[in-house]
Simulated scan of single mutants.
Amino acid sequence: MRELAVAEKNIFMDKQSGKDFRRPQYQRMVKKLKPEDLIYVKSIDRLGRNYEEILEQWRILTREKRVDIAVLDMPLLDTRRGKDLMGTFLS
C-alpha cells in the first residue's frame, strides 16, 4: 500500500481471519468511507472468505457507499475501469 502512496492513516489491517466482515479495522474503514473513495485490496481472499458475503460487501461498497475497489492481484476486478454496462458487469 505504501508503494501506491496510500497514507498510513488510510491503511486498515485486521490481524484476524477474514471469515466474516465483523472485523474491527474493516468496520472502521467502512465508517470512514465517502463517495468516490478508492479501496485497494491486495487479494480478493484478503477481503473475505465467504463468496456470498464478499458479493454482498462488494454491492454495499460500490452501490450504497459509492466507492471504487481495486484488487491488486486481479486487475480485472477494478471498478474504476468503466462505469458503463461492461464495467458494471465485470465488477
Rank of each mutant, 00 (worst) to 15 (best):
G87M: 00
V41P: 04
N50F: 06
P24C: 02
Q57G: 11
N50S: 03
G18A: 15
V67T: 04
L77W: 05
G18K: 01
D14Q: 03
N50L: 06
T79Y: 06
L47A: 07
L38Y: 01
L38M: 08
E52A: 13
L76S: 05
A70G: 05
P75Y: 02
N10H: 11
G18C: 15
V30Q: 03
I39L: 08
M74W: 05
D14Y: 03
L33F: 08
E3C: 08
I60S: 04
S17W: 09
R66S: 10
K34R: 11
S43F: 04
A7M: 00
Q57I: 13
A70Q: 12
Y51W: 12
V71L: 07
K15C: 11
M13Y: 09
E36L: 03
L76Y: 01
P35I: 12
K31T: 11
R66D: 15
D45E: 13
R49C: 07
K65V: 07
N50D: 07
Q25N: 12
R80K: 04
N10F: 15
L38E: 05
L90F: 15
K65T: 02
L33Y: 06
D73G: 14
M13F: 08
S43A: 13
I44P: 01
E8V: 05
S17Y: 09
V41K: 00
S91F: 11
M86K: 11
M74A: 08
L85R: 00
M1N: 01
T62R: 15
G48Y: 02
E36S: 09
E56G: 03
V41C: 10
R46E: 07
E8W: 11
L77V: 10
I39S: 02
G48D: 05
E36Y: 08
Q57S: 12
I39E: 04
E64Q: 14
P24I: 06
W58R: 04
S43G: 11
E3Y: 08
L90N: 14
R63K: 12
T88E: 14
I60H: 04
R80Y: 00
D78V: 05
V30I: 15
V67A: 03
